[in-house]
């Protein structure tokens, strides 16, 4: 029964990790941006959902939709206010742009965290479950909402796969990740591709934030950990590799769940962090990384 519990809980938490990390790796793969405000954007979506659902009494569904809208808005804001001005600045040497973007988004993330703590307190935020009640799977009680979180996460990832592999816009994204210069030579406008990728990223990060708020809850104090978790999954999987991130999310998710159940919840994250260090030593490009 414990094995089944670990299997189910690990699956759900890993699905959510995967959803969070896939956006992070996509935005890096396509536009070379390591967005350290990732956790902050998840937080904004969660706060918007929590505020609309709870404080404005609009219910969890409208709350979730509002959360998605605010997440996308926050992603665009990050792009236009922080990332693009740095990328276009003539004062920053070309080869240092990535470091500046890294620093800019890190500070942006801290600003979001502090602002949320200031306006909404640092109390954890929870959004009512999208569906309540629990299922009994062979003696293991599983909240319906936990199942839904896993289903929505995988649906989102599936949609992303279809978009990237089956649509013209998606193929352009893929091409941009491989050779942006070649793409411009073919007459594609990079600016529009970046907008598209930030839109997709916004949706993914917002979905992850809202689902987290309905599943475990989150708080402003948690944003650093959310970014770190997405970052380490993506590094483990290989920066820019979507399938690498999915595998890494499941490796991390199950390692954490196994540790929490079989050893102690106190050291939940330690083994996966040790694995990350090990991977950095022996395979610095990550599990499926290209560089």
């Amino acid at each position: 029964m414990l094995a089944l519990q670990i299997l189910i809980d690990g699956f759900a938490i890993s699905a959510l990790y995967a959803l969070g990390a896939v956006g992070f790796t996509l935005i890096f793969g396509v536009s070379g941006v390591l967005n350290l405000a990732h956790g902050g954007l998840m937080l904004i979506a969660a706060v918007a959902a929590w505020y609309t659902a709870g404080e404005l009494h609009a219910g969890q569904y409208i709350g979730a939709i509002t959360g998605l809208a605010f997440g996308v808005l926050a992603a665009f804001l990050t792009y236009f206010v922080v990332v693009r001005p740095i990328q276009r600045s003539r004062a920053i040497p070309r080869d240092e742009t990535e470091i500046f973007v890294l620093t800019g988004t890190l500070l942006w993330g801290i600003m979001i965290q502090e602002a949320v703590a200031y306006f909404f307190s640092d109390n954890p935020l929870t959004v009512p479950a999208l569906i309540s009640g629990v299922a009994n799977i062979d003696g293991v009680r599983v909240p319906f909402n936990e199942i839904l979180v896993a289903v929505i996460s995988w649906l989102s990832i599936g949609l992303l796969w279809i978009l990237v592999n089956r649509t013209r816009a998606g193929k352009a994204l893929l091409a941009c990740a491989i050779n942006p210069r070649g793409l411009t030579l073919l007459g594609f406008e990079l600016g529009r591709i970046y907008l598209l990728v930030w839109l997709i990223y916004g949706l993914l990060v917002a979905a992850a934030g809202v689902l987290l708020a309905t599943f475990l809850g989150t708080s402003s104090g948690n944003t650093g950990a959310l970014t770190a978790s997405a970052f380490s999954i993506v590094v483990l999987g290989g920066l820019g590799s979507v399938s690498g991130s999915l595998i890494a999310a499941y490796v991390v998710g199950y390692m954490e769940t196994l540790t929490a159940y079989l050893v102690s919840p106190q050291i939940r994250t330690i083994p996966s962090l040790l694995l990350l260090v090990l991977v950095l030593y022996v395979r610095p490009q990550g599990l499926l990384g290209r560089r």
Binding site: L2, Q5, D9, L216, N222, P265, Q266, R268
Partner: peptide, 15 residues
Amino acid sequence: IRFSPDTTDFTPLFN
């Protein structure tokens, strides 16, 4: 049971 104040997933504890 003593747990870290950073804990976000309490499922294993309740289990």
